[in-house]
Structures are given as structure tokens and as C-alpha cells.
Design a protein around this nucleic acid. Structure first.
Lengths: 230, 230
DNA sequence: TATAATAAACGTAAAATTTACATTTATTAT
DNA sequence: ATAATAAATGTAAATTTTACGTTTATTATA
């Protein structure tokens, strides 16, 4: 009988789970994995791993994010701890959930596919194992909150992006449309994006100017308590 | 030799530490404890405890908060996890820090004293054990952030409070003075405080009207995404 | 009992920001 | 040359924020 194969309830296991968001085709996406190992083999889940006794939680998060996506230096923050005693039927395991924002690009696509992962539109997230749907819900709420006073949206866009692209991202997060004239004005008053001499012509004949994010200016404003609310 | 008395580094211990803030005499205060047991007996620290295998992190937080202050139903939120491998010389212990906002009153004073605790002005926090100073610093930063869009300040005031009192609290958190006329206007536009028919005459001859917080109105606004920024 | 002292309460005009809305522009495809 | 497309720009009205002075209720005192 397999029932008690994973009943390790005598001590704490510490895990991390990563709620990974991306943005493409004007939609906010969640990266979901098809588990290749037991328990829950074949089910859908976030990526996660036990934290090793010799590493910190944030090191563990970085480790597994790189393992599954090949990405380093990703925007990743702690969401919260999930610790209900029966949250995992196999282990007495607390999970410290982390949310990450990544730029979907050609490089990530390959690695993501290799790992049996798939991007899901955040409006149609499938059933995930354990409390992973709850984690996703909480992470989305957190992002909605934070995007109000930090321009984290940039983390989801390619290095070079257009203002209409940025607007679509904000619209996806806020779940409402924004006026393009007012959005442009507001973003430009923040004075943290730099206009480039190139245009992106994928979505219009006229083409839209590309911009890049000015991290140093952003940091200064951030430290002085600037708001960035759209 | 006592050296290895607490060297339990073979498995994870999970702890909670509570960063407890209060407000009195126009100053934001931190509750600091004098440890009565080893390790670190006699040193100053936040209150903390190991999480029992049979309880969740939030249950553990509530348990120790009540143990040390006698208070239930306190505003308490998870701050973040502290998990560096050498953060505690005795155990391989991760701590999930919680910050709490309490109303300093006659009831708390007694219990606080019994437990060898003391309120410290946040500008003159003494050396605490382990990473507790870091936790305090991080908690203060978090509160500064959150108070910008949630009226958590009310959690620190008595049930009945005056507008000038509320203003002093905001001034303590923001670390700057506010215009009393504009502050009053702004707070009243939120429409979440109810004017009572009583006055508080402790700080002026004229006396200031007492108000109470309207939780139900607040909740509704909160859910609709209202901002509450001062 | 009049007066001084004290902090609370109130109002308003100017400045800044936000909102709502329409037209022109650059480019490609026909 | 013309049509089609999305990007880019401007402005006036409404709202919010800011910066200020004066009046009010009460107590202590002269």
C-alpha cells in the first residue's frame, strides 16, 4: 500500500514555491508546471522545492527559478508563508511563497518547454496542487497593490518597449482600460523612461518609439519616496 | 563547557518573532523584552517562540502575542522570513517575523511590566539579539509603506480618539509635520470616522471632539480599491 | 466677572493635477 | 495616389491639493 509513503510529519520541512508571472500578447500570464515526479506526478503546480538545510530561503528561490527557467537576476519577492498543518498531506511542510516577474522571450520559451511548463492566462488558471491556487490568487492581489506605488511593470516587459505596450500591461494588471493620452502624459512625468531612436513596427504602420527604463533615476526617486501611481 | 549546548543544526526549527508597535505621547514605540531564559538571558529582544509542529505560523504568532501582552484580536501581519544559515548560532532556525500594532492602555501596561518588557521610542531602539534590529527596521519601513494606502493608524489609537491625536500619529509615522486644516479635511473626506458627542479635554481647554473608526464603511471602501493616502 | 491663554475648528483662494475628449501624423499596403 | 492603421499630440474643465488667518469654546487668573 502506497498510502503512507510520504508521511513525514515529525519535523518541519521548509519549502519555497514560485509564482511566476509574465506578459505577452497583451495578457498577464502565470507559468504552470506539469509535475514529473511523485507526489502529484502529472498534476499541475507552481515550481517549488525544499529548502536545503545549508541555504537561505532566498537562495533556494533563486536556485529553483534558475533550474526551471534558466533565468538569473529576476525580480522576485517574498509573498507570504503558507503553514496550515494539513496543507501538504505528505509532509509537515511550510512553504514560503515567492512571486517573480519575468520577461517572456525567445530564451525563456525553450527552457520553459523543456521543463514541461506552460503559460496560462491569469483569467483561466487551471486547478493546481495543494494551496497553489491560493498562492496565485494572493500573489495577484499583491501585485495589484504594489504596482500602485512601484513601477514593477517594467520587469515584465522586454528591455525595449513602447508606451502602448506599457499601457496594455497596466490595463492587464488593473483590469480596466486607460486613456492613451493621459497614460502617456503620466508615465512621462515620472521621468524614468528614456526614448530611443528606434521604432517598433509590429503593431502599426506608423510604428511606435521604443523606450527603455532608467533604473538609476528610478532608484533615486524611489528612495525619496516618490509614488509612481498611474 | 557550555559552548555546544544549543547546537541543533541538523534540522529546521521554525520560529516567529513579533515586532510590536504602539503609540503614546505623540511617539511611535517598540515593545522590547528582557529575556528571562537562555540563550541570551538578560539581553533585549523582540518576543518570539518556536512554532509547534501542530500549529500554523499565524496561530503561533497569536499565541505568543497573547502570552506576552494578554491581547487577542490584534492587528498583526506577516513581515518576512529571516533565514540566513548563521542567523542563530544555536539552531538552524528560520524566523517568520510578524508586525503588530496595538493600543497602549492601562490593561496592557500591567501585563507588559509583568513580562519585563519596555516601550522604546523608535528613534532610540537599543541593541537587540540576533537580527531583531534588522526586523524592526524592516517592519518600520513596511508600516511607512502601508500607511500610505491603508488607514492602519487607527489600530494604534484608543477606540475613541481626536483628530489632533490622529494627526500626531501620522506625523510620527511620516516623520514630518502636517497642516492641521488640510489633515482634518483629508481625513474627513475618507468618511471612515464617526464624530461622537464627547470631547477630550486633556490637551486643551476647548477640548477636541472624539471620533471612532467606522470599520464597516472602511471595509467597503477598501474592497472597492480606495486609496486612503494622506 | 472680566480677561488672558490655549488648542480646536473652520474657510477660502491660488496652484497643481487629473480627467475627458478630437485631430493630426507617419507609415505601409493597395 | 489613396486608404488604412495605430501613434502622437493638445487643451479646457473639473477636481484635488496646498498654503494660509480667523474665530471659537473652554479654563485659569486677575
Amino acid at each position: 500500500m502506497k498510502k503512507n509513503l510520504y508521511q513525514k510529519k515529525d519535523k518541519f520541512y521548509v519549502a519555497v514555491d514560485c509564482i511566476i508571472f509574465g506578459f505577452s500578447n497583451g495578457k498577464l500570464k502565470l507559468l504552470v508546471f506539469n509535475r514529473k515526479i511523485d507526489p502529484f506526478k502529472g498534476s499541475l503546480s507552481l515550481i517549488g522545492s525544499f529548502v536545503n538545510i545549508g541555504e537561505s530561503v532566498s537562495d533556494a528561490s533563486k536556485r529553483i527559478l534558475e533550474e526551471f527557467t534558466g533565468l538569473k537576476n529576476v525580480y522576485m519577492k517574498e509573498l507570504k508563508t503558507y503553514s496550515l498543518i494539513d496543507r501538504d498531506p505528505g509532509y509537515r511542510c511550510i512553504s514560503i511563497a515567492q512571486y517573480a516577474l519575468i520577461r517572456i522571450g525567445d530564451d525563456t520559451k525553450k527552457i520553459v518547454e523543456e521543463n514541461g511548463a506552460k503559460w496560462f492566462d491569469i483569467d483561466i488558471i487551471p486547478n493546481l496542487i495543494l494551496d497553489h491556487n491560493q498562492m496565485t490568487f494572493d500573489a495577484l492581489k499583491r501585485i495589484e497593490e504594489i504596482v500602485r506605488y512601484k513601477p514593477i511593470g517594467f520587469e515584465l516587459l522586454p528591455e525595449k518597449f513602447t508606451i502602448p505596450q506599457l499601457q496594455k500591461l497596466y490595463e492587464a494588471i488593473y483590469r480596466r482600460t486607460l486613456d492613451p493620452r493621459n497614460f502617456r502624459k503620466k508615465i512621462l512625468t515620472f521621468d524614468v523612461i528614456i526614448k530611443l531612436d528606434e521604432k517598433d513596427k509590429l503593431s502599426s504602420k506608423k510604428g511606435a518609439y521604443l523606450y527603455k527604463f532608467d533604473y538609476s533615476k528610478y532608484k533615486k526617486l524611489q528612495e525619496s519616496g516618490y509614488n509612481f501611481e498611474i
